[in-house]
Structure formats: C-alpha cells, structure tokens
C-alpha cells in the first residue's frame, strides 16, 4: 500500500483519536504527522510539515476548517519544485456548507459519525489521486489550482451578505481613536485595510490608524464595488490600485497610486486581476 503523510485537525479529542485509529487500520502506510485541535494550528503545522493529506473538521474553535483551507491556499509556497498542495478531506457533523461542491474533485468530505466503509472509500480515492501525482510530476500545480478554484466558490459573497441586511447604507466615516481624540477618517481616503492581530490598520495617504474592529465585522459595511478583498487579511480600495504584477506562484503584487506600500493579492482573489 502506498505510503503517505497526513495531518488531522479535529477539536474533539475522542474523534481525533478515533479517526487516527481507523486510518491506521485501513491504511497502514499512512503516517499521521500531526494531530491539532484548532484551525490556526492546522495552518501552521501544515506549512511546517507539508503533509500530503489534510483531514479538516469544519467547525473548530478560532479558525474553522474552511478558513484554514483558504489560509493554506493563500500561503502555500506554490513555486515550481516545492511540495504539492495537500489533498483535503473535510469532516463535518452536519451537511451545512453545501460541500457537494467538493464531490467530484481531488478533495472529499466525510460526515460524522464517520463510517468505516465510507472512510475506506475515501482512502481508496486519496490513494488513486496520490498515485496519479507520483506518475505525472506536473500534476502538483493543477492540484493547487483546482483547490483554489473550489475554495473560491465557497468564499462568502459580500454582495449576498449585504443584500441580506437592510438596504445597504455603506460606511462613510471611520471613527479612529488617536490618544484621547477621535479622528473621523472618510472611507474615501482609505487606501487599504489590513488585519493585524486584534486590530485593523486603516491606511490613508497621510497616515495610518489602528481600530479595534475585525475585518469580518467591517467588510459587510464597505461597498464591495469599491473595496476589494485581496487576501484574508487585506481589503484595498479598488481605484487606489495602480498596477498588479503576477509572480510565478500565482500571487499578485499590487502597487498603489501615490503611496509606496506594496500589497499581496492571494491566489484566491487572482480572478480580480485579469485584463479585460
């Protein structure tokens, strides 16, 4: 049986242990290189250990399985010759994320409680995909591409989020604390927003502010036509972008009009930078 390495991300200890035991029984050649209990650890460990397979629970504390997969798709090196993007198997108790989108691809999903026959089927599928990869060395780049395509489909559409709320009243001014004073920063002057730990950097041509709001909370308040998400931690004002340059790993480097900062647009948002 083919040898492979895997990472398990599951926050419930009994389920993580049970999945590891079942996999050991069904696939003796599989080496579980790490078993982590939250999404952030999954991203860090996967980037450090470069496993070939990921078993990601969807609902985990902190970063969810889907968010972890997206973060990995953004941060994976992806240069020619580097380790191929892992094959992902999502594990969930309830089919709430329309995971059918993954049905036909290199990725798979499992419903909890995971039944042995179904897990065996998943193992067979994964082995076939790994075998294909080893025979066709160029299959690695398309694998990352395919994963990016699918993860992009599962991105929450800001247009949808906005239409669900009351009539869109886009944010006009951002109150930002500077010492004891509150500066009113017009949204029109903001070049980009960048998430930094628990803060959000609000960068204008003159200066930058820190506000205690997460990007996730702010995003629904911004006009999606004018403000584009280009990375999980970056939102840029579209008309402030001067130029986008694609590198060989699929990322874009953006230069801004009238500001020296350079921003990186991840693969997940590369579709925004296609010439008309």
């Amino acid at each position: 049986m083919i040898a492979a390495s895997a990472l398990i991300a599951e926050d419930e200890p009994l389920l993580a242990e049970s999945l590891r035991a079942e996999l050991a029984r069904l696939w003796p050649g599989l080496r579980v290189v790490a078993s982590v209990s939250h999404g952030q650890a999954a991203v860090e460990q996967a980037l450090a250990l470069r496993p070939e397979l990921l078993f990601l629970d969807i609902r985990m504390p902190g970063m969810s399985g889907l968010e972890a997969a997206r973060a990995l798709a953004e941060d994976w090196p992806g240069a020619p010759g580097s380790a191929p993007f892992p094959l992902i198997v999502f594990v969930t108790a309830y089919d709430e994320y329309a995971l059918q989108a993954f049905d036909h691809a290199a990725v798979d999903y499992l419903l909890k409680p995971v039944q042995s026959e179904r897990l065996a089927q998943t193992c067979t599928r994964l082995q076939a995909a790994l075998r294909l990869r080893s025979q066709v060395p160029t299959a690695a780049e398309p694998a990352l591409q395919a994963a990016v395509e699918q993860l992009r489909q599962l991105l929450p559409a800001p247009e949808l989020a906005a239409s669900r709320a009351a009539p869109p009243e886009w944010l006009q001014v951002i109150p930002a604390a500077v010492g004891a004073a509150i500066h009113m920063v017009p949204v029109d002057t903001v070049l980009y927003f960048e998430a930094a730990d628990k803060y959000l950097r609000v960068v204008t041509p003159e200066r930058e502010h820190l506000i205690r709001t997460s990007l996730r909370e702010l995003l629904p308040l911004l006009d999606p036509q004018r403000f584009w998400q280009i990375h999980r931690s970056t939102v840029v004002r579209a008309d402030a972008i001067a130029c986008a340059l694609r590198d060989e790993s699929g990322k874009h480097t953006l230069t801004l009009a009238g500001h020296p900062d350079r921003l990186v647009a991840s693969r997940l948002y590369a579709h925004r930078f296609k010439a008309m």
Binding site: L15, A93, P113
Partner: peptide, 18 residues
C-alpha cells in the same frame, strides 16, 4: 440541533470501541 446530535453520536461511536 443536528450538529450537536451527530457529533454526540460520533463520540459515542468512538467510545464504544475503547
């Protein structure tokens, strides 16, 4: 809530073995 129910059942399934 299905999430609670199926996760509980999954844990139960794991516990039965060990």
């Amino acid at each position: 809530e299905p999430h609670m129910l199926f996760n509980t059942l999954a844990n139960l399934r794991a516990l039965i073995g060990i």
